[in-house]
Design a binder for these strands. Sequence first.
DNA 1: GTTAGCACTCACAGCGTTAGAGTGCTAAGA
DNA 2: TCTTAGCACTCTAACGCTGTGAGTGCTAAC
Lengths: 346, 346
Amino acid sequence: MELNERSLSILNAIVEGYIASGEPVGSRTIAKRQKLKLSPATVRNVMADLEEMGYINSPHTSAGRVPTAKGYRFYVDTILQVRSLSPSERQRIEERCRLENRRTEDLLKHAGQILSEMSSYTGLVLAPRFNATTFRHIEFVPLNQRRLLVIFVSQSGVVQNKIIEMDDSIPSASELQQITNYLNDTLCGLTIPEVRSKIMAQMQQEKAMYDRLTGNALEFSRQVFDGEMEDDVIIEGVANILEQPEFSDAERRCRIFKAFEQKKSLIELLDKSQQAQGVQIYIGTQAEFQDLDGCSLITANYTNGKQKLGSLGVIGPSRMKYSQVVAMVDYTAQLVSQALKSDIGE
Amino acid sequence: MELNERSLSILNAIVEGYIASGEPVGSRTIAKRQKLKLSPATVRNVMADLEEMGYINSPHTSAGRVPTAKGYRFYVDTILQVRSLSPSERQRIEERCRLENRRTEDLLKHAGQILSEMSSYTGLVLAPRFNATTFRHIEFVPLNQRRLLVIFVSQSGVVQNKIIEMDDSIPSASELQQITNYLNDTLCGLTIPEVRSKIMAQMQQEKAMYDRLTGNALEFSRQVFDGEMEDDVIIEGVANILEQPEFSDAERRCRIFKAFEQKKSLIELLDKSQQAQGVQIYIGTQAEFQDLDGCSLITANYTNGKQKLGSLGVIGPSRMKYSQVVAMVDYTAQLVSQALKSDIGE
DNA sequence: GTTAGCACTCACAGCGTTAGAGTGCTAAGA
DNA sequence: TCTTAGCACTCTAACGCTGTGAGTGCTAAC
């Protein structure tokens, strides 16, 4: 069933009214506010239709109407007009998303912070995924006879480290140096999956040659790149979400905080959003993300100019200022991408 | 004014009763529970004295009594009996505080997690302070012509990195290698303050000799170790604190979360606790930590066997199961120290 | 010094009432 | 056929009232 011009306009009024006030919207309010002069009674008829179609519902008989998840969905998909940022808003984001002499991690953290501050919701940044990163440098530091610290730098300048445990004692310093050189020469510029397959291929080849050093090098690097590195998500401004009236319910508050703490479902969502292009809007329903019912998530990817690295966004109540937040998330992602672009290669 | 045996016992009953139930404790309850058989009326007289001395007060006329910050302070200082951990509790902590092939950061994070899980409050771990760490290894990775990534490994295996921006372009790979070797030879085993003064001394000396390479090396390392590295604090189990009834008040909840987010006041407190020996108990009063009014913090230091590295602990409402948490924090700190001890040197 | 007794206070829960907002329905008008 | 005015109805939230129970402070007797 299609929505005609009028019902569309009324749905729009309900969603925006509810977003603005937080109170259920009644027919009188809409009748007044509306350009197309209609009486409350007519509005009520349309509202009844909209309710039947599942776009809105009312908390109780004598309350106004509130958008459902389906209503929000429809709103963002077809009605929403993204407003452009004011120059001062742009500037505020720019100031925080410059690389300067910061580490990539810090840049991402600042991006999360500015998103949270400007939206008054919670900012999320999915750090560059391990599988998406490109090898730049590896380094081995012996900790004691059996424990070897491996430091790995990706093309985007992110430093990760891991510890590998030896069966027999660690090679000598000069041997380690040779191993380091060999790996840096061989693997530089490859993505992690490429690194993995290269290692496997080399290992096959090595078996015949029996060079102990190269063998060691390959074995070490296999241990490093084997298994998933856990993805990290930066969460900024959780306190903001506490101030939202929709989280005055203790049980609900707890659920969302547990979700923040586990990070797993957030990572999944952010990861999923990475498949897509441009700004994505997720609207919380019981089905999609259990713990984040009643929340919405707006995300966009950031790149290094060539490939997608990760995604960033804002999570808040479904009653969210979409038009503003979408613009912010979009612009922030652009700036982060730009900053990281200047950092690679050359 | 001294507290006699009886008032002591009654104060004890009030504090423990309130900790157990969360409800103000009345004279009848105490009169029943008490070994020294006293009537409610007598208890009331004593309670009036205790109130006058500022150890307890009542939320309103017809409610029981609740300990004040001073009351808690007195309780933990003179009455509190630390109970020892059960074998199964010990085991649970041990399982999570083993180093195995984990990174130091992960070990600390797990320590925070187990503290939060077992106490049902929030676990805090102050990561090894930059100034307290000992130099183990440094490494330079060029990012582009002007940006140099510096990776620094401390004796305790913690990896930190920083970016330094060059005025002119970065030295060649072989020069960098020489610089790296020079610094690793010169600085290994020194604490950061020692590193700083050594660099300064060498720089003085160098001025005469004019060796470009050494000059570069010193200049780079000066940039790295100059300025404070920001201290990091690991916070685990914030959701737990939401479940505490004392944080049902929105305004208060917000304050404490803001404090968690800023981390600054937490770091200050944890840092202060590092001066002292053994388990420390801080009881929130408006004066000491503004944002954490009504909270208590129990901390202990962890070491690497030789020197204090950082501190860890639990933050929760002042109405806290002190006897249990003190034991837990103490044991966890011991285990972490032990794990880190096995990791250094040799 | 201790205790029993008593009057008093206060928070809290339950209850009925009222005001206000908003609805659905119906019938009249365009 | 669509739109609107009118009306009865429903439900929530706020208010005030009351009774109850817990706990206190005071006083007088032991």
